[in-house]
Computed example of a mutant assay.
Amino acid sequence: MAKILNITPAAAERIKELAVSHVGQRLRLSVVKSGCSGNGYDLSFVEDAGPVDEKVCEHGAEVLVDSKSLLMVFGMTIDWKEDRFGRQFTFENPLEAGRCGCGASFHM
């Protein structure tokens, strides 16, 4: 059975680093309306989990997945990339049908 969400070791380390400054909060992944393709990913620290959020733990990091977004991120991989142009979380989602020209938003 496929996993809800895959977290790479690099992403897990970054999540754990960020969690240090967000004591008492948990990282939550949601799909929000955004950009020219219609959808975007939102990673936010929240005080409380939603009543039906899914909890994913991998490599010592925890991410809550918004229940409304669950079907849109099933099987997705979150990674942390650093290069000379910047540092950011990346999302590889096998359910995406395409992305906008700048890559900031996607459609299904």
Rank of each mutant, 00 (worst) to 15 (best):
M1E: 08
A2Q: 07
K3I: 02
I4Y: 01
L5I: 14
L5Q: 05
I7L: 03
T8M: 01
T8Q: 02
T8W: 00
P9F: 00
A11F: 02
A11V: 08
A12E: 03
R14L: 02
K16F: 00
E17Q: 13
L18S: 04
L18T: 02
L18I: 04
A19P: 09
A19F: 02
A19K: 13
V20M: 05
S21I: 03
S21M: 07
V23I: 10
V23S: 15
V23H: 10
G24A: 04
G24S: 11
Q25F: 01
R26H: 10
L27F: 01
L27I: 12
L27A: 03
L27E: 02
L27N: 11
L29I: 02
S30F: 00
V31M: 01
V31L: 01
V31E: 00
V32G: 03
V32N: 06
G35I: 05
C36I: 10
C36K: 13
C36F: 13
S37A: 15
G38E: 06
G38I: 09
N39M: 11
G40W: 01
G40S: 14
Y41K: 08
Y41R: 06
D42V: 05
D42M: 13
F45C: 12
V46K: 02
V46R: 01
D48P: 04
A49Q: 04
G50W: 01
P51L: 09
V52E: 12
D53S: 07
D53F: 01
V56K: 07
V56F: 08
C57Y: 10
C57G: 14
C57L: 15
E58I: 10
E58C: 14
E58K: 13
H59L: 04
G60D: 10
A61F: 09
E62M: 14
V63Q: 03
V65M: 02
D66A: 06
S67C: 08
S67T: 05
K68H: 08
S69Q: 10
L70N: 05
M72K: 12
V73T: 13
F74Y: 14
F74E: 11
G75V: 08
M76D: 13
M76G: 12
I78Q: 02
D79G: 12
D79P: 08
D79C: 08
W80V: 11
W80P: 13
E82V: 15
D83T: 10
G86E: 06
G86M: 09
R87F: 05
R87P: 04
R87L: 06
Q88W: 08
F89E: 07
F91R: 07
E92Q: 13
E92L: 11
E92D: 15
E92A: 12
N93H: 09
E96Y: 04
E96D: 13
A97I: 11
G98T: 07
G98C: 07
R99D: 03
G101T: 11
G101N: 12
G103Y: 08
G103M: 09
G103S: 06
G103A: 09
F106Q: 04
F106W: 14
F106D: 04
F106R: 05
H107V: 09
